[in-house]
Amino acid sequence: MQKNIILAGVGGQGILSVAYVFDNAALDAGFFFKQAEVHGMAQRGGAVQSNLRYSDVEIHSDVIPEGRCDMVLAVEPLEVMRYWHYLKPDGWVVTSITPYVNIPDYPEIDTLLADLAAFPHMVMVDTGHLARAAGNLRSQNMVTVGAASNLLEFTEEQLLKHVEGLFARKGEKVVAVNRKAFLYGRAAGAFFRALVDGGLDAVKAVKLCSKIKPETMAVALAPAWVERLRNDEALLDTILESGSDVSAES
């Protein structure tokens, strides 16, 4: 077993915190791991990435070769495109759909999402929506950890232990927010995939998810939503236009 993950985002979004959680979980699990990161100039709002590799046999290169990447995990949707040519044929993308716009030529978001949605092995989560619901917009990075966790070799407990450890010195409230962000991300990632696997278009699926109360998301409820949206073409627009979030159980 070997897992190679490219963590992508913008300087200041907390990529290194994401790496911290996986590094420590990998150490606990007895895996070999290497994790290369970017320091210095790029951290001032530039594109940043970290190459994270864990394995049950020795790892050589600190950087992931083209064609050996199992997952691009992005805290920002545009950043996926900088790295997805590293993915192996059955590799996955797990990404936030919340754009970080600090450049004048940022692409139109709907075009960007449609381009991403065309990739079959895709998990999209609205990290802005989920982090806000968890209590702090800054916890978007832990939402992506949660969303990716369904595809990795770690248990929920193994990862949560280090989400908590990472924020422990900032106090209980921050720990609670980030725990929640992780759990919402985990549920949203699974719910999104259940919708898409049930036949719903990926862009529609993530748009629906961004209006659903995160604490109500459950895989078991996804087929009914696929069915309802199929029978009522106007339903999604109605939900998107309404001011408040809906329960997945409604």
């Binding site: 100039m41 001032r44 530039g46 064609g67 545009l78 495109m81």
Partner: peptide, 21 residues
């Protein structure tokens, strides 16, 4: 030989250079 990949390189991605805070 090059390894097979799931996606080809996407050209023309908006650059995101570092900037003053």
């Amino acid at each position: 030989p090059k390894l097979e990949t799931a996606h080809s390189h996407t050209g023309d991605i908006a650059l995101r250079p570092p900037a003053l805070c």
